[in-house]
């Protein structure tokens, strides 16, 4: 039997976890919305971001939250360079080849991490890793509350960037009509690289926010990536508010699915929601902010 208090707790907990998922999905939705491809390397790049954060924390003794802005910049450079130097260059702009290229990049990165860090699992120790906020009978994890808040701020920032800046407008133009954008003097190749860079920069933030409550290993990206795809589709590809709402919905679905179906069968809820949304509302809950 599931008591009401557990149900409440499950709901709140699902929302908090959903915030983390939204973080991972924000970058993916941007890449999806602009390049229209499934970025297979997303999980691997999250892993790289987490290892980057882990190095800054355990070698340079930074606080993970202090490492965050640094990792955002580093991941932007990595993402931008990866697209400009590898993915874009070898794929010739062909969707099918971009997809294969991201797959190839994922294989290289996963094994690079294995070579550099071995397959061992790492965690970091912070003074606040077990800190909780007491909300009635609930104990809410502080690191999770922080990542929840940052997810929303980040989504707002991205939305503002896309809506209010010239670069943002250029990205939207390319996402909609690459040929037309070229005519007005925008170079789609550069915009693609820029969008990929921004999408991956989001992972820099996600990685650092995950560190205090999660672990890092070369395989860690796979833990999140399928869920992130689901959120992107659910929220509407390319939509930042969609990614946040989708993330929260998926978090709650997973949490309640686990409560009602058990943690073994529970994850099926995510895939079922995903399939149903695709079949009945393939545009997602939100239209992309184009």
């Amino acid at each position: 039997m599931i008591s009401l208090s557990i149900l409440e707790a499950g709901l709140v907990n699902g929302l908090l976890t959903g915030g983390v998922y939204a973080l991972v999905a924000l970058g993916l939705t941007l890449i999806y919305g602009v390049l229209h491809i499934v970025n297979f390397a997303h999980g691997s790049l999250l892993m790289i971001a987490m290892f980057g954060g882990w190095m800054l924390v355990s070698w340079a003794h930074l606080d993970p939250y202090a490492a965050l802005p640094l990792m955002v910049v580093i991941m932007f450079v990595i993402g931008w360079g990866l697209y400009a130097g590898v993915i874009g260059r070898i794929s010739g702009g062909d969707d099918r080849r971009i997809l294969l290229a991201t797959l190839g990049v994922a294989i290289v990165l996963d094994n690079l991490a294995l070579v550099l860090f071995t397959g061992d699992t790492r965690t970091i120790e912070t003074p606040y890793q077990f800190a909780v906020v007491e909300a009635g009978p609930l104990l809410l994890s502080v690191p999770k509350l922080i990542s929840f808040g940052v997810a929303i701020v980040l989504a707002l920032l991205l939305w503002a960037f896309m809506a209010l800046t010239d670069t943002g407008r250029a990205i939207r133009a390319v996402a909609r009509e690459p040929d037309g954008a070229r005519l007005v003097g925008i170079r789609p190749g550069r915009i693609f690289a820029l969008s990929y860079g921004i999408g991956i920069a989001c992972l820099g933030a996600a990685g650092c926010l995950l560190l205090p409550s999660f672990y890092v290993s070369p395989q860690v990206g796979n833990v999140f990536v399928l869920t992130a795809f689901t959120i992107v589709v659910l929220g509407g590809m390319g939509s930042f508010p969609g990614a946040v709402v989708g993330g929260l919905l998926i978090g709650v679905t997973e949490s309640l699915g686990g409560l009602f179906l058990g943690e073994s069968l529970g994850p099926i809820g995510i895939s079922l929601v995903f399939i149903l949304v695709l079949l009945f509302r393939p545009t997602g809950l939100f239209r992309a902010a184009r």
């Binding site: 557990i6 707790a9 499950g10 907990n13 976890t17 994890s141 999660f214 796979n222 833990v223 999140f224 869920t227 997973e254 949490s255 686990g258 409560l259 058990g262 943690e263 073994s264 529970g266 994850p267």
Partner: peptide, 16 residues
């Protein structure tokens, strides 16, 4: 309580 691998969040399990 059985759970899948990977499981990303154990709060529900722990609450139960």
């Amino acid at each position: 309580m059985a759970h899948a691998t990977p499981t990303r969040d154990f709060t529900n399990v722990v609450l139960r």
